[in-house]
Amino acid sequence: MKVLKIENNEGYLELNDNSIKVTQVTKENIFDVLKLIYNNDQIEFDELTEDSPINNEAQRIVYDNMYEYLTKFNEEKQKLKDEVRSEFEDVINKYKLNIDISHI
């Protein structure tokens, strides 16, 4: 699943089959993409390279910054799951609760 895409020299955030230009992204979109990354194992990002550039400078800056943060979050999500699991494990086991920490 691709969440950051470069197409026709423009950067997009891919969310629920919608492509949103990175300069149009709202805080809700960011929040939803974080959930998407957390819930899915296969996450892909288009990297900003010379072969696939973004012409508009402002858009390039936004894309580049989002790419940095979102790829880092993707790399760390398993660690996050482990951390959250260890925090809630006692309670879930003690009270025999039906809660899946790996998805939200």
């Binding site: 974080l34 943060y69 880092k72 979050f73 660690k79 996050l80 951390e83 959250v84 925090e87 939200i104």
Partner: peptide
Amino acid sequence: FYELFKNYLYCEY
């Protein structure tokens, strides 16, 4: 995003 989402998860769970 890690810390931010962690807090969100804590509250949700």
